[in-house]
């Protein structure tokens, strides 16, 4: 089976003046059709950097080496315009801070419409209809009104769902979620996770799910990478990693998680 995305020996180096800092070190991994790959790692470990570098989202201060094959074509060799046309259509992303990801000066409807206009030749009516379909699918109440709202008038959870809706609207081949639950309260987190599970079951879209929350990743990811300081330190299924973690950092994460779970069960047990 050919992977949807295959990174081989991917390295990202940041050069500021004479200082060079390697942010991603010789990473190799693959995502297969219908699979959800989880990337786990603490803040600053280079998770976002890894995906941003492949999508051409970094400026010229970052130099990237290695390969990022998307259905066999190396994204790192593509022209900027080709990459732009792929982003938002073939490869889409959901970001961490829904509240700051929309331009505060334009209505939601306008920002959804400009996304469709960049990738399709739909008429304004068709764009309007599709936008409403997305909002309905993402269970936004009063979709017509929501289109007329400015970002600051909607909640973080609603904006996050709109972002997810936009990310799946054009039937992408790869969906990347970069800590989609970190900036949201616990109840909304569950809804957002469910939305991803649904996408996975209904459309079999290949996914990369980035997080530093072991609980979230256990639910959606089929396979895990653990990153620490720019390096991939562990790889395998959730239960494999749970029992055969090689890396000190991974073990630490698991211990912490088990401690929390233990206390949780104690409390629950005490209540019953």
């Amino acid at each position: 089976m050919t992977p949807v995305l295959e990174a081989s020996h991917l390295s990202v180096t940041l050069t500021v003046g004479k200082k060079r800092k390697q942010l991603v070190k010789d990473s190799s991994f693959a995502v297969y059709p219908g699979e959800c790959l989880g990337i786990l790692g603490e803040s600053g470990s280079g998770k976002s950097m890894t995906v941003k570098s492949m999508l051409g989202l970094l400026d010229q201060h970052f130099s990237i080496t290695g390969k990022a094959l998307f259905y066999g074509k190396d994204l790192l060799q593509e022209k900027r315009e080709t990459l732009r046309a792929m982003r938002g259509k073939d490869i889409t992303m959901v970001l961490q801070n829904p509240m700051t990801c929309f331009d505060p000066l334009y209505r939601i409807g306008n920002q959804m419409a400009e996304t469709f206009a960049a990738h399709t030749n739909w008429s304004p009516q068709k764009i309007q209809e599709e936008s409403l379909v997305i909002l309905e699918r993402m269970q936004i109440q009063n979709p017509k009104e929501a289109l007329q709202k400015y970002p600051h008038q909607l909640s973080g959870g609603m904006l996050q769902r709109i972002m997810i809706g936009l990310a799946v609207a054009l039937k992408p081949k790869l969906l990347i979620a970069d800590e989609p639950t970190t900036a949201i309260d616990a109840i909304t987190q569950k809804e957002i996770l469910d939305a991803f599970l649904e996408i996975k079951q209904e459309h079999q879209t290949a996914m990369i799910f980035i997080t530093h929350d072991l609980g979230a990743i256990a639910k959606v990811a089929d396979r895990l990478l653990v990153m620490n300081q720019g390096e991939i330190v562990d790889e395998g299924t959730y239960s494999h990693i749970l029992h055969h973690a090689q890396d000190r950092y991974t073990k630490l994460l698991i211990e912490k998680r088990q401690a929390v779970m233990g206390r949780y069960q104690q409390v629950l047990g005490g209540m019953i």
Binding site: G88, N97, T115, H119
Partner: peptide, 26 residues
């Protein structure tokens, strides 16, 4: 440097739109 510019790039908007409609206006 703002998130909305990153997200505009993530959505694959053309540079012209990002620079004039979003960044210049803000």
């Amino acid at each position: 440097k703002q998130d909305y510019v990153l997200y505009a790039n993530v959505r694959g908007l053309p540079q012209k739109v990002i620079l004039i409609k979003h960044i210049l206006k803000n």
